[in-house]
């Protein structure tokens, strides 16, 4: 089984990397971009029995820093 964890910066936390990507997109000639924020995707292959609460514990203990980041868990097909 595969689960995807998306880690993103909380609203209000400055994202200098997102800003740099934004500038790079515009310097390629693309226009109409309002904002870019960068995050991280973590794919986890696991046994089917892994509980949602264990996944959440992994996220809050290690995969995301809850001071600055949020996480979202998505069960992949």
């Amino acid at each position: 089984m595969k689960t995807r964890v998306f880690v993103t910066l909380k609203n209000g936390v400055l994202d200098p990397q997102g800003k740099a990507i934004h500038h790079a997109i515009e310097s390629l000639g693309f226009s109409g971009i309002h904002d870019v924020r960068a995050g991280r995707l973590i794919e986890i292959e696991h046994e089917p029995g892994l509980s949602q609460s264990d996944l959440e514990a992994m996220c809050s203990k290690l995969l995301a820093n809850m001071v600055i980041e949020n996480f979202e868990i998505e069960q992949a097909a």
Binding site: V13, P16, Q17, V67, I68
Partner: peptide
Amino acid sequence: LPGALMRNAGI
């Protein structure tokens, strides 16, 4: 210690 250390503002 509280807080976090993030990427430098100037990258």
